[in-house]
């Protein structure tokens, strides 16, 4: 036999002595086999539960619910299988009793079980006294997640590489494009500025040529100031506060899309007229007959 260290032996003996209510020396002697061991009055393993009625709220799957609450009864070792079977077939609306006592009650119920008729009824079930309550069932909590998702899950991908790679490629493409056009297309540089010589026509930068075109129809206070300020700034900024339609599907916001498309078409047409069809004195010219007065792209439009 392996020698057990003295201090461990003593510790075990103390625990044993406490459990059995005997002196430590006696326990020690028992463990060494010198004395006949004290008989342990075995406590019942089954934990007594006071009979509490468990309300099964959701009746639709009755068998499943009964089964879920049944396990304590099934755990009672001495309870015969028939008893459990009887439980399973219990009417759904009924309150399911799930204590050993209840199990025995079911067992004693007149419901016939095949084994019962054979006389193999278990005669004794080891129960603790009614008074010894160690634990009680308060409620049955349905399994639910603690956190409630508030929004729909969104299909997402990692930024790296799924977004940054296309971004990087478009940056490279833009760089290549810029270098290419810069190599083949010379930025315009006319004669030195001279306030005394007015070119004819004098054109604004291309993005203002739509406005300059409007200027030729309307009073400058309207075309030159009111339209850019009111439409170009105020109306644009106010768009989200005017358009209260919450939809973002194109089919559900046809009016908004129509308005913007009209704006694009109008601005584009006016700009193109200003760029291509206006010559000296802001007179109408045809680019294919009279040429183009547009010095922003001097290299392209300069006809010799």
């Amino acid at each position: 036999m392996v020698d057990i260290p003295e201090h461990l032996l003593l510790k075990t003996a103390e625990a044993r002595a406490k459990a059995l209510g005997i002196s430590v020396e006696q326990a020690l002697a028992e463990m060494r086999g010198e004395v006949q061991p004290t008989k342990i009055e075995k406590e019942p393993d089954v934990i007594e539960v006071t009979p509490i009625e468990v309300e099964v709220k959701e009746t639709p799957p009755p068998a499943a619910e009964v089964k879920e609450t049944a396990p304590p009864a099934v755990e009672v070792k001495e309870t015969p299988p028939p008893a459990a079977e009887v439980k399973e077939t219990a009417p759904p609306a009924a309150e399911v009793k799930e204590t050993p006592a209840a199990a025995s009650a079911v067992k004693e119920a007149p419901a016939p079980a095949p084994e019962k008729s054979n006389g193999q009824v278990p005669t004794e079930v080891d129960f603790a006294p009614e008074t010894k309550v160690t634990q009680r069932l308060l409620t049955v909590v349905k399994a639910k997640p603690i956190q409630k998702p508030t929004s729909e899950p969104v299909d997402k991908v990692n930024t790296w590489p799924h977004l940054m790679l296309p971004e990087f490629i478009s940056l490279m493409a833009m760089t290549a494009f810029l270098i290419f056009i810069s190599a083949i297309l010379q930025a315009p540089l006319l004669e030195e500025a001279n306030p005394n010589i007015t070119p004819n026509p004098a054109k604004a930068p291309w993005y203002f040529l739509g406005l300059q075109e409007l200027l030729s129809y309307w009073d400058p206070q309207i075309a030159g100031v009111m339209i850019p300020l009111l439409i170009g700034v105020a109306a644009f900024m106010a768009i989200p506060y005017i358009d209260r339609n919450k939809e973002n599907k194109p089919s559900k916001r046809k009016y908004a899309i129509m308005l913007w498309t009209f704006f694009l078409a109008g601005a584009g047409t006016l700009s193109l007229i200003g760029i291509l069809f206006r010559g000296p004195g802001w007179n109408w010219t045809y680019p294919w007959i009279d040429g183009v007065w547009f010095d922003d792209l001097l290299d392209w439009v300069h006809f010799e």
Binding site: L189, E191, P199, F208
Partner: peptide, 10 residues
């Protein structure tokens, strides 16, 4: 240049 000064004048 002439392009710059007159565009800005406009």
């Amino acid at each position: 240049d002439q392009l710059a000064i007159w565009a800005v004048t406009v």
